[in-house]
Each structure stands twice: as structure tokens, then as C-alpha cells.
Design a protein around this nucleic acid. Structure first.
Lengths: 353, 353
DNA sequence: ATGAAAGCGCTAACAG
DNA sequence: CTGTTAGCGCTTTCAT
């Protein structure tokens, strides 16, 4: 039965038992060099016997450092963040920091409230795919070091994936497979990543002389991807690139249900390479973000910032993305002129050449 | 550029500006009833102007309460915890608490270290599928209120799913489909859930006069499930129940690759109903744990404990599980005496029908 | 209802 | 190298 009666020993208890001043005990733990080896040894021994453990809270008060960092995630439920969380945690632990993880539950308001309650508690904050406005972010960046992940906010250091390059690879892959028209399934309008991806797609497509068309925005979820089918049917293409894996998966399912075959009738590529991407059938071709590395980089940079380092680079730190080719993309079949999966009545003729 | 120069105003700044004693300011925030309505109003106004926000750290020192609770997860990467985290977070926020999430990275040692660093910081701890020994858990339960999730530890309150009932439902479902022999794919030996599930399976199977056979243990991952194929092939059955969804998914994939058809040749049921369960093909029939509710219940109970409530019930609090029937289970085909998916060379002729 | 003062447990000058 | 002495920002008796 939980009996939290025993008050944990304080620095004074140790000091008394070791016959030294409390400040010496403090030094023995914080600055072992500044204390006689023998005394230090004795203090450690006594402390161990008493079961003394320095109270991080009390320590934080005079020093102003809590050794806590906040990681705010727009939606912990999204598998996209799994590896990011882990990378961040690893970097934090490695540096002796503890992580305060907060789920913003998709809401800019909740995000703000949560931040409200935790800014003063942490030495720095990583904002992953924040739903807050740029100005709100700059606001909190005034109070504590902040790194934004997966987004660029002027005057606030950030870590992102190299979407342009990832997108270029996806487009080249599709081009090699003979596809000529690509539909982009847009994610949330507020998403910075969505903007860069669509922009990158337009440029990439231009380079290799293909065409791109955008539909959306849709929710960045399986349901959102499924919902995109109707729009896609109105203007079908043999290839589609989705804002993220979840949407790609949703679309594939809807497509399959509607009688289309992936990748035979339409090739689909996602973004992020989340865990489920390789589990679904067909396994998803996707642009893999270096999730773990991103979480890690964000925390490391944050910690550097907290230590007083000025952000070196000006633009965001950009981590390389890779294309993971799996089974959801295939060579375009010339003969499939009209989609078998038209909305209601398959308006056959409207297909591309 | 992050300029954390501006020191945030203290209670004294507010007191001075409002022309009252600091203690009055303190009361105005903590015990509004104990202060003149007008003064309180003035104080709030001044505080707002100055942008004063009470420092939770400084508050925690004299009160001993940090309004922080720790949630330790054996592996944040496992989708099983997604909804649990969310439920926990919701309950915490609702009660005005902030959550300190820690990933134990599958390691009892790391778990312990992380705990070491955070016990003194929190008002209570939820241990989800802890990898530590019962005695280690009881140890930390002596220092702070603790709730263990998904496990039973004597003398420590816990929240679990009703595995026996879930298992019974799965077995009845399989029985109705005409299956007679069920293989259980065991998860980690150290897992409390694994023990109860296998035990429940044996009992359930006995009630309806079927047979159960256990293979394993395997890693509770997709890879682990795939690895189980070899063992299963050695002693094939028309139905298998896996320790969890990830393993079930892994097995299905391996089975499919080996040329077997799910559910035609073998029916597979998982446990947990994680997000990916409905995404895979065939969609997984699984025993759904009330993930969100579990996280929520754990935190609520913890908070009650922290408030001084004695745990009412003696055994663990058990939350109901449901069977979600999807596409990975089907009626047993009488004629498939020998598996078409034998270990190495698929002995062609042996196909069903 | 309000003020004064004594800490919470620890760190950080400053002397010795 | 070690002891002394102030605080960090807030709460909490105890007076008034």
C-alpha cells in the first residue's frame, strides 16, 4: 500500500550526518572538483546510506534550470510522431534532460494552454508541427528557447525534412514508370509541410515535363484520404502523391473498394514512411522522412540554444528524405484509358489521351 | 531571435505595483475567497498588466505538490500506447495536471533510471506495462502514488483489461466458425498480459471442448509474429490467436508470403485493436482493449490516490474488452487437412479443395 | 481582511 | 578547501 509518509532526507540531514556544512554537500554533488576527495567520499557514503537524492525542484529554483524540456506534438495519435518522440527522448536523456511530452490534440488553443502551463517549467521547447500562428510561436520563443519541427517560422530556428528533394525523387520515380499526370492530395491548409510539398511537386513536375493537379485540402488521416476519392474520380490520373501516408492508405482503400486496382490502375505514393506503410497491402511507396534523426536534431539544437549558442544557420536545418519504393507504384498501363472506378456513372470519355 | 532576457515578474513586483503585501497576492491567486473582492480584482488587473504568471516550480517547493504526473511507457513506438497516452493526457489536463511522459525503450534499466530522475518531480506515476520487477515497482510505490497499467502487482493498485472475457469471446467466435484446434502465439515471457491470456485461453478452450497449443515466446512485434511461422508450420492448426495485433499481422504476412491464405487456410485473431489492425489486408479480427479508457482510468485513479484516497478495491480494476470481428477469421474448411504452406517447399498438391 | 516573517531544499557569493 | 550567509519565488502560520 502506498505510504508516502517517509520524508526524504534533505541536504541538511546529510550535512549533519557527515559533519560538514550543507554547502559542502551541495558542492560534493554539483562540483565534485571543488571539494576534498576524502570529504567528498564520506559525503557520498553518508548520502547513500540515508538514501538522499537531490531534489531537482529545489535545485531549479536558485539555478533557474530545471533540466526539463518540453516536446509539444500536434497529435500523439499520429504514428508520424512515434519515431520523432523516440529520437527526441534519446537526445534528451543522453544530455541528462527529462522530457515533458504534451499532446496538443490537434488544437491550437489546447496547445497554447498546455504551453501556458509548462513554459515556466522547462529549459526549452520543441514544437512539432505546431498549430499555432507564427506570431504566437515567436511570442513563446521570447520566453524560452524554442525549436520548431516540420515547419519554418522566421526568427525561430527549425528542423525540417528536405521535402523538395523527396518530392523530386517521387516524381522522377513516377516519370520513369511512364506516368504523365500526377494528382496531389493536399493536406491541411495550415500545414507548412503541405505548402512546400505542393510547391516542390509543381517544380519537379515542370522539370520533367509532366503535369500536376491538386485536390483538397483533406484531413491528414485515413478518412481524409478516402474522402479524396470523389474528387479524384472527377479528374482521374494514373498517379497520385498524397500529403502523407495516412491519406495515401485511405485513398488506396477507397480505390480498392471502388473496384480500382493499386498499383495497376493507379499508382499511389505517400509521405513520411510511417510504421503502417509497409504493413498495408499493397505496401506503400513513400518518401521517408528521417523521423528519429529529426527528433534528435531538434532536441540537440534546442539544448545548444539553451546553453547560449546562437543559431548558426539562418534557414531551417534540413534533413535528407529518401524514397522508399514498395508495391503501391507500378508502370502506367497505357490501355487503361478510362478508370473502372468512376464516381457513379463512369464518365468514360473524360480520360487522358 | 530568442532573447530570454526579460525576467518574468514575481509576486513581489505585483505586490508592489498593487500596493499590497506579497502574501495577499499569493492568496488572491490560490485562495480568492480569503481576500477582499476589490483588492483581488486590483491584483488580478495589475498582474495581467505585468504579465505575471505564478511560477509552478516556486510554488511546488513549499507545497510539495508539483501538479505533474509521470507516465512511463515501455515503448512509445508501440501503437498500443497511442490511445492510452491520449486518454491519460486528457484525464491529466482535465484535472489541471501536466504529464511527464517517459519512454522506457523496452529496458527495465532505462525505466529505472528515468524514474530515478523524475520521481521527485511528480505527484504520482502511471507505469504502463512496466518491465521492472514487482519489488522494484513496490519500491517506487513507497515514494509516490503509483498505478500500474496492464499488469497486476500485489499491493499496488492497477488497471487492466478483462483479458479472460476477451479471450473467451475470441474462442467462442472461433468455435462458432468450426475451428477445433487453436494455436496461441505467445508474447514476452515477462509479460503479465501474456500469462493471463494464455491461461484464459486454456480455460475458455476447455469450456467449449476445443484444443489449445502454445508456441513461443516471440517478440511482441511484426517481426516476432513472422518468426512464429516456422513453429506454427510444425504443428499447424486452422486457427491462431496471437498475443497482440502486431504479432498477428506479422504472422499473416508470413503466412501469405508462404502461400497460405488468410482467413481461408488459417484464421488469425489478435489482441489490442491497434490502429493498424483495420488497415492491413485482411483486416484483423481482434480483441479490442479500451485503450483510451484505460489511460484515463489510470490517471484518474492515480490522482485520487494522490489526493489521499485509499484504493477501494483489492484486485486490479478491470476494464471490459470487446471482440472486433473483421476479415482475418472465417469458417474452417474441413477439407484442408494438411497446410499448403508447409515449411520450405510448398508441397503443391496439398492445396485445399 | 491583511501584513510580517519564517521557511521549502538548494545554490552561490563571500569570507576565512 | 570549507563554512557563513543570503536568497530563488512562493506559501503559510501568526499576528494585527
Amino acid at each position: 500500500m502506498a505510504d508516502q509518509v517517509t520524508k526524504s532526507p534533505t541536504i541538511y540531514d546529510v550535512a549533519r550526518a557527515a559533519g560538514v556544512a550543507s554547502s559542502t554537500v551541495s558542492r560534493a554533488f554539483a562540483r565534485p572538483g571543488r571539494v576534498n576527495a576524502e570529504t567528498a567520499e564520506r559525503i557520498r557514503k553518508v548520502a547513500a546510506e540515508l538514501g538522499y537524492r537531490t531534489n531537482p525542484l529545489a535545485r531549479a529554483l536558485p539555478t533557474g534550470r530545471t533540466c526539463l524540456i518540453g516536446l509539444v506534438i500536434s497529435d500523439v495519435t499520429n504514428p508520424f510522431y512515434n519515431e520523432i518522440i523516440r529520437g527526441a527522448q534519446a537526445a534528451a536523456t543522453e544530455a541528462g534532460y527529462t522530457m515533458l511530452l504534451t499532446d496538443a490534440q490537434e488544437s491550437g488553443v489546447k496547445e497554447r494552454e498546455a504551453l501556458e502551463r509548462s513554459v515556466s517549467l522547462v529549459d526549452g521547447i520543441v514544437l512539432a508541427s505546431s498549430r499555432m500562428s507564427d506570431s504566437a510561436i515567436r511570442m513563446i520563443a521570447k520566453q524560452r528557447p524554442v525549436i520548431v519541427l516540420n515547419r519554418a517560422v522566421s526568427d525561430v530556428p527549425s528542423v525540417v525534412t528536405d521535402n523538395p528533394r523527396g518530392m523530386r525523387r517521387a516524381v522522377h520515380h513516377l516519370a520513369e514508370l511512364g506516368h504523365e499526370r500526377i494528382t496531389y492530395l493536399a493536406g491541411p491548409e495550415a500545414s507548412w509541410a503541405d505548402g512546400t510539398r505542393w510547391q516542390a511537386l509543381r517544380e519537379a513536375v515542370h522539370d520533367v515535363d509532366l503535369h500536376a493537379h491538386r485536390i483538397g485540402p483533406f484531413e491528414p488521416t485515413v478518412a481524409g484520404g478516402a474522402a479524396a476519392l470523389a474528387d479524384l474520380a472527377r479528374h482521374p490520373t494514373s498517379a497520385v502523391i498524397a500529403y502523407n501516408d495516412l491519406m495515401a492508405i485511405g485513398l488506396i482503400r477507397a480505390l480498392t473498394t471502388a473496384g480500382a486496382r493499386v498499383p495497376d490502375d493507379v499508382s499511389v505514393v505517400g509521405f513520411d514512411n510511417v510504421f503502417a506503410a509497409e504493413l498495408v497491402t499493397p505496401a506503400l511507396t513513400t518518401v521517408a522522412a528521417p523521423l528519429h534523426a529529426m527528433g534528435q536534431a531538434a532536441v540537440r539544437n534546442l539544448l545548444a540554444l539553451a546553453r547560449g549558442a546562437r543559431p548558426t544557420t539562418h534557414g531551417p536545418v534540413s534533413l535528407p528524405a529518401q524514397l522508399v519504393v514498395r508495391a503501391s507504384t507500378a508502370h502506367r498501363r497505357r490501355n487503361s484509358t478510362s478508370p473502372a472506378w468512376g464516381t457513379t456513372r463512369v464518365s468514360g470519355s473524360a480520360a487522358r489521351a
